[in-house]
Design a protein around this nucleic acid. Structure first.
Ligand SMILES: [Zn+2]
Ligand SMILES: [Zn+2]
Ligand SMILES: [Zn+2]
Ligand SMILES: [Zn+2]
Lengths: 328, 328
DNA sequence: GTACGTTCACCCCGTTCA
DNA sequence: TGAACGGGGTGAACGTAC
């Protein structure tokens, strides 16, 4: 029981053993590296087959395109890949600490090497970043939303839920939080296109949510999109799957468009629902949706619909169903 | 009921459970650590969004900048963070006591660990360094005269106001004031007008979906919806400015003396002001949560709407029906 | 009992090298 | 490409002075 949990984590991309979240999805080390290396390259990969490669530990290296698509589909987020600046900053910090440490220990240590590096990278980066710096750049795609700290951000998130949320049940009570399931919930953040001029209604908002991705039994791996909802869980699961599909669609759409915003949005939506639903759960097992939950659901639907032209009928019907949960 | 009171303490920064005051504000353990680690670093953090992140247990890791700002805004005081010297002194004292105790108890006892520490200062890593090096000049650091124990001083003062000022405030106004629930009131400081306000108005806002639930007296995290703290406060700000002038004068008087006393004074003054303002605000209802949630929800909806032009009528009606949240 | 600092396990990102 | 590793940030638990 104790260490079992570790073994339960499975890479959402290839099914290999996973240690935890990477770029916002549970993945193995190799997929992590793969994503970091390839997610930002602008070049499109080509599938040698027909874009439907099943990714496994064995096949994962055969088709970069499908592997990358899979990565994105399970929610891996490009924005969490450090920008060149971030990396430089990080290296610098490490250098500093190292130097400092060394200095304290014994100040005789060689310092020459260090500063050499600190002089650093200035040179190369150039173009990428330039865009980032300008305040209003609408582009932002490649880089990250913000150079500053995306990474930590995410990390934190994941960390959080796990720990604080379920850890002490006590807080759960008054804490909105999710879960309670057992272990790895996760968060998501989304941000809308706050591209410059949309200011009118201050439309841009970032929502964070926690989605609890189930862990323990079953579904954890169940990420594989589209596939089956084997689980018992009833309606909630179903709903979630639906949203997930929608999300996937969006992401697929995004494929062309490098901007991750939409995908993030979708994630958020998905998570929102989940968060609510988990909240509801905590109170009672009853499968009733409270108004908040219901509202959320509707909202999700709206959002998704707007996002992607083709809306699923299934979903609609589903909604109809869910809505009947005692409407206020 | 008896121990309930303990549970009532809520972190003024993120809303998590708090045990008591830390650096002059009621905070959770994590915010305490966060503040200690980051308040003195010279480097400015950067908000990935637009400096309006709502800080909750979930989102607190997203944005260091807004978290730190929040810390300061609720009155957490950098001066209470021990300086490196203080720490060294403290360690020394501990060593001494330990040694003495050990000697008394039985001098054969394990010494291994001890000397390890005595080697001490090197005490490798971790958090030490972070703060040390900052050149920060302006206050305290090198100076010294007093740094020896500013902290205590501060504490005392706070204690005082506490008493006189808000005593019963219990939870209070939206946002800034955190609570104090029943026993220990606390001080507040007002945040500085965010230096470069220029950026903030950009339309983007960060919201947390989950909202903070909080059952009892929520208050904790202010929600961003409409009444945004920073912007609103015109009159308030003005007042503060005035007090600030006064404070400055005082400081000028103290001038030569680098000691943080003046800051303390300042704190007290501000606090008073805040106490008033919070009173005025005090919002009525207890069942806050829903409202907050609702607001959140609406916000989301609005955001989504704005996002995507084509909105489905069906859905609209649906939403209108089910969730009466009046969408604006 | 309160409020500091310290420690340590943990999470996840980057780097390195075979 | 991927295993192994280095490392920083976080937060719970703990030690200690007062
Ligand atoms: Zn994998
Ligand atoms: Zn393929
Ligand atoms: Zn907190
Ligand atoms: Zn922020």
């Amino acid at each position: 029981m104790t260490k079992v949990k570790v073994d339960l984590k499975v890479c959402g991309v290839c099914g290999d053993k996973a240690l935890g979240y990477n770029f916002n999805a549970v993945t193995c080390e190799s997929c992590k590296a793969f994503f970091r290396r390839n997610a930002l390259v602008q070049k499109e990969f080509k599938c040698p087959f027909n874009n439907q490669c099943d990714i496994t530990t064995v096949t994962r290296r055969f088709c970069q395109k499908c592997r990358l698509d899979k990565c994105l589909s399970i929610g891996m987020c490009k924005d969490l890949i450090m920008s060149e600046q971030d990396k430089v900053a990080k290296r610098q910090k490490i250098e500093e600490n190292r130097a400092r440490k060394r200095g304290i220990g014994s100040f005789k240590s060689g310092f020459k090497k260090i500063k050499k590096e600190s002089v650093e990278a200035d040179s190369q980066e150039s173009e990428y970043f330039s865009s980032i710096y300008n305040t209003d750049s609408d582009s932002r795609d490649t880089g990250s939303i913000d150079q500053g700290y995306q990474p930590n951000l995410m990390r934190v998130i994941n960390y959080v839920d796990t720990e604080s949320m379920l850890k002490d049940k006590t807080c759960v009570s008054n804490e909105r939080l999710v879960s309670s399931s057992d272990d790895v919930p996760m968060i998501k953040t989304i941000l809308n296109p706050c591209s410059k001029e949309g200011s009118q209604d201050s439309s841009c908002t970032l929502n964070t949510l926690i989605g609890n991705s189930e862990s323990n039994c079953n579904s954890s791996t169940g990420f594989s999109n589209s596939s089956e909802p084997q689980s018992t869980t009833t309606s909630r699961t179903a709903t979630i799957d639906v949203t997930r599909d929608v999300v996937n669609d969006v992401q697929r759409i995004n494929a062309v468009d490098p901007s991750p915003i939409e995908s993030i949005l979708c994630e958020a939506i998905k998570l929102e629902y989940e968060a609510f639903s988990s909240m509801a759960h905590s109170h009672s097992n009853s499968r009733e949706l409270n108004d908040a939950e219901r509202a959320k659901l509707n909202e999700l639907i709206v959002a998704n619909k707007a996002l992607l032209p083709p809306l699923d009928d299934e979903l609609n019907s589903l909604i109809g169903e869910d809505c009947k949960f005692k409407v206020l």
